[in-house]
Simulated scan of single mutants.
Amino acid sequence: MDKNYETVRRIMLATNKIDGVYYLLGKNYGINENTLAFLYALTDGKPHSQKEISDEWIIPRTTINSIVKTMLAEGYIMFCSEQHTKEKAIVLTESGRKYADRFLKDIYSAEEKAIIGTLENYPPEFVSALEEFGNRLYQEFHEILQNKKEHIKHEQF
C-alpha cells in the first residue's frame, strides 16, 4: 500500500501542477480555467455538444452553459446542426479562433517543448498509462459515490 500510495501521490502532485499551470496561464490572460479548457476543447476543429465537453473535460454543465451564453453573445462560437442528435453542436467562429489563438498559441508552444523533452526520457506509452489510470480512478470514484447515494437512500427509510 505504501508504494502504491507514493505512486498515486506523485501522479496527483504532477496533475495538480499541470492543472495549476493552466489555471495561472488563464488568470494571466484574464480568463478562468474552465473557459480556457472550453476553448481548448473546440480548437480541434470538430463540432462538440455542451454535454460532450462537460463529460470529457469534467466541467459542470451549468458552467459550460454559462460559458456558451457568453461566447455566443461575443460572437466567438456558433451552433451548427449535427444530424442524428438532439444536442446542438458548437464550433468556433473565425473571430473565436482568433480569440482562442491569442491564448493557445503560447500554450501550444510550451506544450510542444515540454512533450519533446519528456519523450526524450520516456516512451509515448506513458500517456496511455496515465489515461488508463485516470479512467480507472474515475470509475472507482464513481462507484464510491453511487454506493454512498444508495447508503443515504436506505438510511432515509
Score class of each variant (00 low, 15 high):
Asp2Lys: 14
Lys3Ala: 06
Asn4Gly: 02
Glu6Gln: 13
Thr7Ser: 04
Arg9Trp: 06
Arg9Gly: 05
Ile11Pro: 01
Leu13Trp: 08
Thr15Glu: 13
Asn16Tyr: 08
Ile18Gln: 10
Ile18His: 13
Tyr22Cys: 11
Tyr23Ile: 15
Leu25Cys: 14
Leu25Glu: 13
Gly26Lys: 15
Lys27Cys: 08
Asn28Met: 13
Ile31Thr: 12
Glu33Lys: 15
Asn34Glu: 15
Leu36Lys: 15
Phe38Pro: 03
Phe38Gln: 07
Ala41Tyr: 10
Thr43Ser: 10
Thr43Trp: 02
Thr43Arg: 03
Thr43Ala: 00
Asp44His: 01
Pro47Thr: 00
Pro47Glu: 01
His48Ile: 07
Gln50Ala: 04
Glu52Ser: 08
Glu52Pro: 06
Ser54Val: 08
Ser54Ile: 03
Glu56Tyr: 09
Glu56Lys: 14
Trp57Asp: 15
Trp57Val: 13
Ile58Tyr: 09
Ile58Gln: 13
Pro60Trp: 07
Arg61Asn: 05
Thr63His: 06
Ile64Leu: 00
Val68Asp: 04
Lys69Pro: 00
Thr70Val: 02
Met71Thr: 02
Met71Cys: 02
Leu72Tyr: 03
Leu72Cys: 05
Ala73Asp: 11
Tyr76Phe: 12
Ile77Arg: 01
Cys80Tyr: 02
Glu82Gly: 02
Gln83Met: 04
His84Gln: 07
Thr85His: 01
Glu87Thr: 00
Glu87Ile: 06
Glu87Arg: 01
Lys88Arg: 05
Ala89Val: 00
Ile90His: 00
Glu94Gln: 04
Glu94Val: 04
Glu94His: 05
Asp101Tyr: 03
Arg102His: 04
Phe103His: 11
Ser109Met: 09
Ala110Cys: 02
Glu111His: 14
Glu112Lys: 14
Lys113Phe: 06
Ala114Ile: 14
Ile115Tyr: 07
Ile116Leu: 08
Gly117Ala: 07
Gly117Asn: 07
Thr118Glu: 08
Leu119Ser: 03
Glu120His: 10
Asn121Val: 04
Pro124Cys: 09
Pro124Asn: 08
Phe126Val: 14
Val127His: 12
Val127Phe: 13
Ser128Trp: 04
Glu132Thr: 11
Phe133Trp: 08
Gly134Trp: 06
Glu140Pro: 04
Phe141Gln: 09
Phe141Lys: 09
His142Lys: 11
His142Asn: 14
Gln146Thr: 06
Lys149Leu: 14
Glu150Asp: 14
Glu150Ala: 15
His151Cys: 10
Ile152Met: 07
Glu155Gln: 09
Glu155Pro: 11
Gln156Cys: 05
Phe157His: 10
